[in-house]
Design a protein around this nucleic acid. Structure first.
Lengths: 151, 151
DNA sequence: TTAATCCCTATCAGATGAATAGGGTTTAAG
DNA sequence: CTTAAACCCTATTCATCTGATAGGGATTAA
């Protein structure tokens, strides 16, 4: 399951995507308010995203943050991996962060590994194939649909 | 990530698969010893598997447990779902245990949902496509390979 | 100089994960 | 009918993770 933190990170990232056009610095407090994310908690998330090169930030007055790359170059998988760790079901079936599990010597788990790798490739294929740009576009179309439905 | 509990459950299930031929009652303590699983912890796991119809059990002297179905009819996905919960990344993208997430009203998360559903279908496809029988077979071939390599 | 902003460290309550303890209940063999 | 042996139930422990809050330090552009 996704953590709240990862969902917040995705929401914040999409928010930044929508405002990425003019390269302006966006306030963390604006994101927090618009997306209803606890401000201090969001700050910690933004730091992680910055440390992993997803966003750039500028301190001091008139500072803020913005995506470090075009929204079409950042995937859902990227964000989730940074916040929640590898997509794989075990360390030993991860490709981006491979590591032996403590109990990986066991033959049954090893018998399991090919399946788990297949599973991880399947999820990764989907989540890495979906970019922030696509999410932002989909959000835009949904909100307009809603508006039309309400009208 | 898979919990230890789920790995234990898978190991125990494969162990039962290997001995399913003669329909005998297998002792929990035998599974615990062979698979190096803490006995009391394993007992709790077996109860869960029993409650979900994966295994049958008989109490009292000469009791034990065994698979309630042929190993070819029980999938890795079945076991994982019972022990660790839905394969989906959010309640709202689950098919077997659908439920709205607390924050599912948010449009970005909703924009995310189709992707998450795709991801869940992808993992489910893999994990439900792998049965205990296949795992047991793969374990058998591996251990013989090992023996050959050692010899 | 200063107001505004990101950033760092510490802390906290609650949930979850992994395991242990101890006995209760049931069963089949003798 | 007794009894040894097994599953089964409740409670408890300990460590870690999650989600969040607090307070201020460092930095920047006007």
């Amino acid at each position: 399951m996704l953590s709240s933190k990862a969902k917040y990170a995705l929401r914040a990232s999409v928010f930044l995507s929508e405002r990425h056009r003019d390269q302006a610095w966006i306030l963390a407090s604006d994101i927090a308010e618009s997306e209803e994310i606890p401000k201090k908690f969001l700050e910690a998330i933004l730091v992680e995203l910055r440390d992993h090169g997803i966003i750039d930030s500028r301190r001091g007055r008139y500072g803020g943050c913005r995506l470090a790359h075009p929204p079409s170059r950042i995937s859902v998988g990227d964000i989730i991996r940074i916040i929640d760790g590898p997509l794989a079901l075990t360390p030993c079936s991860s490709r981006t962060q491979y590591g032996a599990c403590a109990d990986c010597v066991d033959p049954v788990i090893c018998a399991l590994r090919p399946v788990l790798q297949e599973a991880r490739d399947a999820v990764a294929g989907v989540l890495d194939g979906c970019t922030l740009a696509q999410l932002a576009r989909s959000r835009r179309s949904k909100s307009s649909t809603t508006r039309r439905a309400v009208a």
